[in-house]
Design a protein around this nucleic acid. Sequence first.
DNA 1: TTAGGTGCAAATCATTTGCAATCTC
DNA 2: GAGATTGCAAATGATTTGCACCTAA
Lengths: 150, 150
Amino acid sequence: MNVHSNSPRVEDILQRLRRAGHRITPQRLAILRAFADSHSHPSVDMVYAAVKPNFPTTSLATVYKTVVLLKELGEVMEIGFGEGGNRYDVRVPTPHPHLVCTRCRRILDAELDALDHLTETLAQSTGFRILSHRVDFYGICPECRRKAAH
Amino acid sequence: MNVHSNSPRVEDILQRLRRAGHRITPQRLAILRAFADSHSHPSVDMVYAAVKPNFPTTSLATVYKTVVLLKELGEVMEIGFGEGGNRYDVRVPTPHPHLVCTRCRRILDAELDALDHLTETLAQSTGFRILSHRVDFYGICPECRRKAAH
DNA sequence: TTAGGTGCAAATCATTTGCAATCTC
DNA sequence: GAGATTGCAAATGATTTGCACCTAA
């Protein structure tokens, strides 16, 4: 992705930012691009590291503030991890299952059609009004398994 | 539960502590009891608060150190929460689904027989070796729903 | 022009750690 | 008595906040 074109997802967010009365600063644009370009689920530090080379004056605090803003607008979903900081999903900012490799720390999206049905069953049997979920599977990704086998 | 008898779960853990060469200090005993007595999934602060009245000299650091020890021994499972600290499960210290009330912060265990089958399907379709999971449903518990309806 | 945004540095909050004093085995 | 454990206080690491300066609209 070159520096002068935005992905549809970035344009999308930019539009909503403007509509909500927020300003498009060069820092924000760079942070948005870093988020959208990241095919994994980046941490704040990863985004910061990706932004700094193109925009050396950007501060970590600004990345954090931008993340807060994007969370408020629902454009980013936070996945809480104890170690090494939270990770974020800009591509699919709604609850969905993840596959987390505990070796390389990569996070992949997973398909699990059965989940909706499961949620409903659980709601009925417990009386809970279920509004959201967090479904993460931890293990070793195919790549790391291959490496481990020499 | 009075101060002089231990639940089977506490006796269980005490035995394994001794067997692993760890000492049974009064602080540890009090912390273990607080963990086991708590029918919800307590945070370190909750355990600390429960221990202090009976054992005023106990320090937070000791509670933390005991938690580390219990985690290492597999007697306690940590459930990571960003806000307000992690929560712990001593009763069922292996991965299982939870129902989390976002209003009263209560955490309940859930039954979900379908999960094992689901995990296996996911492992096959993705090539991941799945070793663990974290399945949490967030919502409003029956009690909080009742209160909300006057 | 002027609110909103940035960046520094200091403040938080949960958790960990170093270490001398104190206990359990 | 020896080595593990405690408890204080200081260190850590992620995140937040206060505030003077800056800049997009």
